[in-house]
Simulated scan of single mutants.
Amino acid sequence: MLQSVPFARTLDISFEKVEPGFAVCRMPDRADLHNHVGGPHAGALFTLAESASGAAMLATFGDQLSRATPLAANAAIRYVKLAMGEVVAEARLQASREEVVATLDAGGRPEFDVAVDIKTADGTPVSQMTVAWTLRPNR
């Protein structure tokens, strides 16, 4: 992931667990990533969650990259509590691999969601995000 998405290195995002349909990413507490109240900036939280969603997606559909390009089509985030310190994002694919690949096989452009929960290191929920991904067939 860090080779294919270099921006994640800028935030020191680590990919702790990546498997089909699931990923866990962590972002350290760094002063240069803080907002005006001393916690991780909203943009940094967004990037952490998007990175986790991409890892879960690629772990599931990486074998399809020769015929389709993955693209984030839409994202929505809800900030529920002020985050402080290190944060962890857990991403879960919300679609069946079989259905997504079948749509691609039929010549369609599948779209599917990945839900992400962002928590502090002690497990306190701070944000929720959904990223809608698509696999654009290569021409």
Rank of each mutant, 00 (worst) to 15 (best):
E111I: 05
T103Q: 14
S66E: 10
E90P: 07
D113C: 04
R78S: 12
R26Q: 05
L93T: 02
A49Q: 08
F15S: 10
A49M: 10
H41C: 05
V114Q: 05
V116I: 11
G107D: 04
R78P: 01
G85L: 05
G85Q: 08
Q64F: 02
A49D: 06
T69K: 13
P28I: 01
A72Q: 08
A132D: 02
S14R: 14
G107K: 06
L71Y: 15
C25K: 06
S127R: 00
F7E: 09
R78A: 09
G108E: 13
T103P: 10
A89T: 07
P70Q: 02
M129R: 03
H34Y: 04
L65E: 03
R26E: 05
A52L: 10
L45D: 00
P137V: 03
A72W: 04
T120L: 01
A23R: 02
W133G: 00
V80G: 05
S127C: 15
G107C: 03
E50P: 03
R9L: 15
L2T: 11
G39V: 02
A52Q: 12
E98Y: 10
P20R: 07
S4D: 07
V131G: 01
P137T: 00
C25A: 15
V5G: 06
L58A: 03
A55D: 13
L58Q: 01
R139W: 10
A89H: 06
Q94L: 15
F22I: 10
K81G: 08
Q3Y: 10
D117Y: 05
N35G: 11
L65F: 11
L33T: 02
K119W: 07
A44E: 01
V37N: 15
F7I: 10
T60W: 00
L71W: 11
R139E: 14
A52R: 07
T103G: 09
A73N: 15
R92S: 14
R78D: 09
S4M: 00
S66A: 13
S53M: 13
G39Y: 07
R26I: 05
D113P: 01
D117G: 11
